[in-house]
Simulated scan of single mutants.
Amino acid sequence: MPADPDRVITAARAWLGTPYHDQASLKAIGCDCLGLARGVWRDVVGPEPFLIPPYSRDWGETGPREVLAEGAAAVMIRVPPANAPPGALVLFRMERRAIAKHVGILTGPATFLHACERLGVIEQALTPAWHRRIAYAFQFPAI
Rank of each mutant, 00 (worst) to 15 (best):
T10D: 14
E48N: 03
G104P: 09
L68M: 08
R38P: 00
A135Q: 09
D58S: 09
T107C: 15
T62G: 04
P47F: 01
R57N: 12
A129K: 11
P109T: 09
I143V: 14
A100M: 02
V103I: 10
L51H: 10
L68D: 00
K101I: 00
W15Q: 05
W130R: 11
A24F: 12
G35I: 04
R78V: 05
E95I: 06
M94R: 09
Y20F: 15
K101N: 08
H21D: 13
T18I: 04
P86D: 09
H102M: 10
F92C: 07
W59K: 05
Q23H: 15
G120T: 08
R7Q: 13
R65H: 09
F138E: 00
R97Y: 13
P49N: 12
Y55E: 02
G87I: 01
T107F: 10
G63Y: 01
W59F: 13
P2R: 13
R96H: 13
P81L: 05
W15V: 04
T10W: 13
A88Y: 00
I99R: 00
D6Y: 14
A98I: 05
E117K: 10
A69P: 00
A84Y: 04
V67S: 12
S25M: 10
C116G: 15
L34H: 06
P80V: 05
S25V: 06
L68Q: 01
A88V: 01
G30S: 08
